[in-house]
Design a protein around this nucleic acid. Structure first.
Length: 383
RNA sequence: CGGGGCGUAGCGCAGUCCGGUUAAGCGCGCUUGGUUUGGGACCAAGAGGUCCUCGGUUCAAAUCCGAGCGCCCCGACCA
């Protein structure tokens, strides 16, 4: 990607409404734009990070044996009345009356919908256990949206639901998800702790939350629940066991705030100059900075290195703007790309400089060896 | 929903207390031309405003009064 063709509206100053570091940096680095309280656009760079996080979540969920599906955001209120949660959720739900005078809601979570699916199609112990999940936008009319995307009214969530024949099976599914979550958060470069939590309006017997470490006390990046038979009883989701007896399905549910992960990563990975992305979720792995675009040699070699890196499958952005060197350095640091390839005067000695964002260490290397060098360090880091 | 703060150019702000010629200002950003290019360059010229909205007071309102809307922070609440 060439910077001049892309869309990264960086800002020197953050709007005053942003107070937490992740919120400020997400706006300054051109990741998000606020439309309304708790409602954000993901700008191209932000979307790229979101997709990378999403894919890590998807990969690890799939590895665990969970199966992806996609449920609707629009749901009939009637479903929520079956479980008595329509009143329990109350004003946290965004509701409306459709033209046929039916009460509808924008899904804040999907226990009701998934249980409806399972009660329709799962009839026998032979179909269990199963874990179904989706990555989808949730809507919650938060009492008080805050801290940018950390508490938003519309946000991307991965929600998974497990179905088992008994409590022991539920424990297995629960522990499987717990281990999967550890892998996901580690791959995202997050430091976290797991603590027992209140189950709140989701209900169930037992829950634990994954809390990311950072300056901002954000209420958590993941939460796992043992629901038991609460929903299966109220919604009549039964299966027939091997003795021919009908029993309620044991359920668990497991949420990850995908968009919240991004803020959590930033809270734990930044310095005075901006974001320091872990390689696994960085919007680009490498940024190429030609110091002077009107110098033909610098320009040509930058283009050459750029093409070379692309051909080798490296996610690279070329800062081909007619801006001063300092300006480009500031933007590169702010946006937090892990590696900067700086092409300047040293090109006369066939050398370019490679800087690691996280350590600030630089190394001069022959411009023809850049691709191999980058490939080596990326491979090393991805281990 | 209780408490606090804010709303003036894309962003950050001054001006509001004490109404009037500071007849709407500054920094950054933006446009054009030129010179630059290793840490948010310099010179010159320029563009950009329903001063949140509506109503009231007044000879006169960004400024005073009333209502509303929006945004942020603390709390309660929550995944």
């Amino acid at each position: 990607m060439k910077w001049s063709n892309y869309f990264i509206p960086t800002q020197k100053e953050a709007p005053k409404e942003a107070e937490t570091i992740s919120h400020k940096l997400m706006i300054r680095a051109g990741l998000i734009d606020k439309l309304s309280a708790g409602v954000y656009t993901y700008l191209p760079l932000g979307l790229k990070v979101l997709r990378k996080v999403e894919n890590i979540v998807r990969e690890e969920m799939n590895n665990s044996g969970a199966v992806e599906l996609l449920m609707p955001s629009l749901q009939p209120a009637s479903l929520w009345k079956e479980t008595k949660r329509f009143d329990k959720m109350g004003k946290d739900m965004i509701t409306f009356i459709d033209r046929h005078n039916r009460e509808m809601i924008f899904g804040p979570t999907h226990e009701e919908v998934i249980t409806d699916i399972v009660r329709k199609y799962v009839k026998s112990w032979k179909q269990l256990p199963i874990i179904l999940y989706q990555i989808q936008t949730k809507f919650r009319d938060e009492i008080r949206p805050r801290f940018g995307v950390i508490r938003a009214r519309e946000f991307l969530m991965k929600d998974a639901y497990s179905f088992d024949i008994n409590e022991k099976g539920l424990d297995n599914s629960y522990n499987l998800m717990k281990e999967t979550y550890k892998k996901i958060f580690s791959r995202c470069g997050l430091k976290f702790k797991i603590q027992e939590a209140d189950s709140g309006v989701i209900g169930g017997k037992f829950s634990e939350e994954f809390v990311a470490e950072g300056e901002c006390n954000e209420l958590e990046v993941g939460h796992i629940f043992k629901l038991g038979t609460e929903y299966s009883l109220s919604m009549k989701a039964y299966f027939v066991d091997k003795y021919g007896k009908e029993s309620p399905i044991y359920m668990g549910c497991y949420g990850i705030g995908v968009s919240r992960i991004i803020a959590a990563i930033i809270e734990g990975n930044y310095d005075k100059n901006g974001i320091i992305w872990p390689l696994s979720v960085s919007p680009f792995e490498v940024v190429i900075i030609p110091i002077n675009m009107s110098d033909y040699e610098i320009k040509n070699i930058s283009e050459k290195i750029y093409k070379d890196l692309i051909e080798n499958g490296i996610d690279v952005i070329l800062d081909d703007r007619e801006e001063s060197a300092g300006f480009k350095f500031k933007d590169a640091d702010l946006c937090g790309f892990p590696y900067q390839v700086v092409i300047g005067k040293k090109i006369k000695e066939k050398k370019v400089e490679i800087k690691a964002r996280s350590t600030n260490k630089t190394e001069d290397i022959n411009f023809e060896k850049v691709t191999d060098y980058i490939k080596d360090i990326l491979r090393e880091e991805k281990k």
